[in-house]
């Protein structure tokens, strides 16, 4: 039920933002459209009922700021490689461990890897991610880097800690 209400809120909010008009007719038709979509989604049983959510959402803006800096830094590095007269690249394909507990955290980590120029996630499994890196240095940076730890830090603490060493390696 909560999922359905959430879906309705997102759909209706998108409608209002994209229309930008606040006449009763448009608002009501927006609500009707959103409700119809939710009804069809429920009928087709397409509603995602997984209960993944980030426990420490307030850390997200800090993570995004850090990620933006990382993306710009690596964009400059990769740009220099692209514009260099001699192509100086050494691509590698390797598996990198991931410490996220939820699917959402894993998706966030994989997307962060792909968004950062120089590294690219090609396969996501539980506990590890296959990464293609443009240079050996990019792969080393990802491995030694604390991106994995930072993504895990936005997740909730586990209810039953499997290992006493939480997140840190």
């Amino acid at each position: 039920m909560l999922h359905a209400v959430g879906l309705f809120a997102v759909l209706f909010g998108t409608w209002v933002i994209l229309s930008g008009h606040f006449t009763p007719f448009l608002l009501i038709s927006g609500a009707v459209c959103a409700a119809l979509t939710v009804a069809i989604t429920l009928r087709m049983d397409l509603l995602d009922r997984r209960r993944d959510f980030l426990g420490r959402v307030w850390r997200l803006p800090f993570y995004w700021l850090w990620l933006a800096g990382q993306i710009i830094l690596w964009a400059l590095i990769v740009s220099r490689k692209v514009l260099a007269p001699r192509l100086d690249i050494d691509p590698v394909l390797e598996r990198v461990p991931s410490s996220q507990r939820s699917d959402l955290g894993r998706v966030m980590y994989a997307n962060s890897i792909t968004l950062t120029p120089g590294t690219l996630s090609t396969d996501v499994r539980e506990g590890e991610i296959e990464v293609h890196a443009l240079t050996q240095a990019a792969m080393e940076d990802l491995k030694s880097d604390d991106m994995d730890r930072r993504v895990s830090a936005t997740e909730a603490a586990p209810h039953k800690p499997a290992e006493p060493t939480e997140g840190e390696r």
Binding site: V82, I89, P91, L115, P117, L120
Partner: peptide, 12 residues
């Protein structure tokens, strides 16, 4: 695969 890295620069 190496082409995807510059493509990612445009996207982000």
């Amino acid at each position: 695969f190496t082409r995807m890295h510059p493509a990612g620069i445009t996207d982000s």
